[in-house]
């Protein structure tokens, strides 16, 4: 591979990282807004948030990307820059998955904590901000870490729309060299390295957040082989 082709790959990495960053921001915002809305006391807010989750979780991310690229422009008369269209589609879809994580973690906080907040006459917003979220957020990190990897894998979808991300640069190099094994191996390895770095960062974040609420980070779950007939239960 020549240096010019490597430059293409580097540009691809940069686009993928940018897209990952922006769609992570949007997905996080959507997760928290929708996830918290699902615990709201008004049924209509809960219903709307649940409806959003069902719709965006129910459809395929790729179909969503097609929809944002092809249906939104004629319907509303404006066209998004590919980067923002990709961010919008990915952020909304993965935000719907994330909202389930937020809802689950909020539901898992000890009810006595909420009751304590009521007894101290905190407003609902204070309860959420000062009592529930600080305890729920550290619990969300491991599932969010998995979701982040899914999102990274999802960013490859925009290459189908011709955006020059990492997967797309792989296709360009394949066309240039008429040879595919090498370049696709490199592309897969690069994705793997990014995913590995992300899990590391998330693990560090989890450690830090859990220390903030006085909890030990989750033990690394080693696969425990079942002792055959050893009598230990």
């Amino acid at each position: 591979m020549t240096s010019g082709l490597w430059e293409l790959v580097l540009q691809g990495i940069w686009v993928t990282v940018q897209l990952l960053f922006f769609s992570t921001l949007l997905a996080t915002a959507v997760s928290f807004v929708v996830g918290i809305a699902r615990t709201h006391r008004l049924w209509i807010v809960r219903f709307l948030a649940g409806f959003y989750t069902e719709v965006f979780r129910g459809t395929s991310a790729l179909v969503m990307i097609f929809w944002v690229f092809f249906v939104l422009p004629p319907a509303f008369g404006w066209q998004l820059v590919p980067m923002w269209a990709g961010t919008l589609a990915l952020g909304l879809t993965y935000g719907a998955y994330g909202s389930e994580i937020v809802r689950g973690a909020l539901g898992a906080v000890d009810p006595a904590q909420r009751e304590g907040g009521i007894a101290l006459s905190f407003t609902p917003w204070q309860r959420m901000r000062l009592i529930l979220l600080p305890q729920a957020v550290p619990e969300m990190i491991p599932p969010f870490s998995n979701l982040l990897i899914e999102l990274l894998k999802g960013t490859a979808l925009v290459s189908i729309m011709g955006m020059g991300d990492l997967a797309f640069s792989g296709n360009l190099v394949r066309l240039a060299l008429q040879e595919s094994a090498e370049i696709y191996t490199y592309i897969l390895l690069i994705y793997f390295v990014i995913a590995f770095l992300l899990t590391r960062v998330m693990r560090g974040l989890e450690k830090k957040l859990k220390a903030g609420v006085g909890k030990a980070p989750r033990k690394k779950t080693a696969a425990v082989p079942v002792p055959e007939g050893s009598g230990v239960s």
Binding site: K153, A156, A167, E179, S180, A181, Y184, Y191
Partner: peptide, 22 residues
Amino acid sequence: EFVRNTPLLVQLFFLFYVLPEW
């Protein structure tokens, strides 16, 4: 672990374009 952490789309391209070369 590798297969799980890399995009399905690139894996599809890999199989679709590399297998014929082999």
